[in-house]
Design a protein around this nucleic acid. Sequence first.
DNA 1: GATGAATGAGACTTCATTCAT
DNA 2: GATGAATGAAGTCTCATTCAT
Lengths: 197, 197, 197, 197
Amino acid sequence: MANGRTPRQQQAEETKNRLIDSALKVFSTKGFAASTTKDIAKEAGVTDGLIYHYFKSKQDLIWAILERHTLVHHIQGMLAGLKPEMSTTNIVQHYVRSLFQMLKQNNDLIVLIYGEAQRDPDIRDRLAGIVSGGAKPLAAALAGRSRLDEDALRHAVRNLQFAVVQYYLILYRTRPDEEELEHYLTATANQFVTIIE
Amino acid sequence: MANGRTPRQQQAEETKNRLIDSALKVFSTKGFAASTTKDIAKEAGVTDGLIYHYFKSKQDLIWAILERHTLVHHIQGMLAGLKPEMSTTNIVQHYVRSLFQMLKQNNDLIVLIYGEAQRDPDIRDRLAGIVSGGAKPLAAALAGRSRLDEDALRHAVRNLQFAVVQYYLILYRTRPDEEELEHYLTATANQFVTIIE
Amino acid sequence: MANGRTPRQQQAEETKNRLIDSALKVFSTKGFAASTTKDIAKEAGVTDGLIYHYFKSKQDLIWAILERHTLVHHIQGMLAGLKPEMSTTNIVQHYVRSLFQMLKQNNDLIVLIYGEAQRDPDIRDRLAGIVSGGAKPLAAALAGRSRLDEDALRHAVRNLQFAVVQYYLILYRTRPDEEELEHYLTATANQFVTIIE
Amino acid sequence: MANGRTPRQQQAEETKNRLIDSALKVFSTKGFAASTTKDIAKEAGVTDGLIYHYFKSKQDLIWAILERHTLVHHIQGMLAGLKPEMSTTNIVQHYVRSLFQMLKQNNDLIVLIYGEAQRDPDIRDRLAGIVSGGAKPLAAALAGRSRLDEDALRHAVRNLQFAVVQYYLILYRTRPDEEELEHYLTATANQFVTIIE
DNA sequence: GATGAATGAGACTTCATTCAT
DNA sequence: GATGAATGAAGTCTCATTCAT
């Protein structure tokens, strides 16, 4: 009674969430078009028809996924550990590692978004939003510390992000190599510091 | 023996090439799974069944596309203009602009490969190949000029490529802005030079 | 013993009746096969499942509708206003207008029955019953006043009914035109009198 | 070669026509909504998918049916036998019998149109057109012979048609009785002559 | 070489019906 | 009595693929 949700409603919400999670998993594995509602239902352990009790269409599942997984709080979390007294190098090292953690933790979502962005303008917009959502706070944190003007700093930060994400998607995801990763992140962060200082 | 091909053979080859080009266009627009053979046939101006006279299956068209468009010669062309007497800055500026030109000229192929790479391991390998295919020659050209060791230089070059490609796919392609592009390429090239020198 | 029904029983009966009325409305609008139980429940302002608390099946709703709306008393009411001292013309004029009123007042039911009669033999029988139910009393009222033999009179009365019902269903219902209707009913009644006198 | 259609095209057209005929048969039996495309395909002896090679949708089949079976030439044929020297009675007798023949010969189409007219405005319009298409020529043929004014004659003719069609749909079709039919048609025609002379 | 009719598997979606709460 | 989550069968439609012409 505390939260006004009956057990029945709670279970319904659980089922709905399970469907969203299953859809995310299936979509990210096969791509949206190649995924079937049957796959999703089976993954969620329910029958086909139930999807349409909760969602208007297969496409609707994509919106539900994006609504549920905003990434925004992940990005904010990433920057929570940043403290003013840290050195620039420390800040950047912390940032690239946090970003990489977030990519790993949200692997399915990232893969889904990058995969579908090429053909769905709405998702492409979403992706652009995520990119700038991550870039802005770091640019702000580094504002006073850099010899670059605002514009150049923005470019640099965005390039940093692009590079790390691509490294994850193309190289790391296929053949994870933790040692190589460590070198890569360290080198990339240091090179970034060279640029801005 | 001039060319040893009858007019019929020539026409057949033309038709086949037209089908490959049409498939590339359609696949890059809708994605492989969401494209239909009917779409492709219509785009090529032939009837449905003819595809199966030239190709074993829809999937086979992907292989044919990749075989026909290697990008390798594009990448080599990119570097053809590089001359030993150019300054490092000039070399890098030339490189990022050539790379960007290549992306624009091969838009469909790039979009197709990036879109399908997430779900087709063969294509992912192909993508990885392209990436290193582009990175190696630039790394070689810069070898003697950089204070970085080989490993760090490789990371830097790869990051440069990742960044430019992402910039193209996510930002430029959706809303082309030539002025902003110019700033971006200049800044990115310069920042890269800062790293390696 | 006043009425011997608890409030709950009363409410149950109300709900059931509301469901029957809603079903009639929906069926007559979309036809039986194209109507969904969800439509009906929504129209009645209850949830899907409740229908099956009151009715065995969707088909069962049709029976319930037909049971509740017999039309018999409407037809009898139609003839209640007939008095022996009225002229034949007056009787017939009164009859066609009463019949038309009944059609308007029972529009949904009439549309439903005519629409479904083609594919449901039970409903076709019901329709035949309605037709003769209306024809017999008029034939009786006119028995002594006509030069026609019983058989011919029956045909004439039935044709009168058929014509008026069709006029309602095909012409009036789609584009009501009260003036034209008035002409039509007057002419039709007069022509009928010409036949039987 | 004579007509420029290859045997292949001819067979395709036959298949298409067979599908239209099958659809008409199935629709008129079960009604549009309750008919399945599988029913239609089976009736035509082809597989489900082929329907969509020839028609855009199930609904499209209705339009194709209506286009193919105009009834207009049937109605004109009905009146072809009318000759100026025939007596009015003969003309009307001929007309009602021709009309009835047409109903029997086009049973499926008539049943379909009457059944769907209640819920499809387009079909209702089509039905209204058929009704007036049949009424006008008879009214014209009788114009000089009747004491009725134009308006009254139109009403009378329309009522005649309505009555015969309803008789066919409701009474005859369910339990055909040739003797009773003969009485009915004779009586109805005679009564009509009484009205107009 | 080219056509397009035909197939058949399977996709998305709807919906009557059941049942635990 | 009332709810609405869940089922599962079936329906419309799509599409890769085959093949006779």
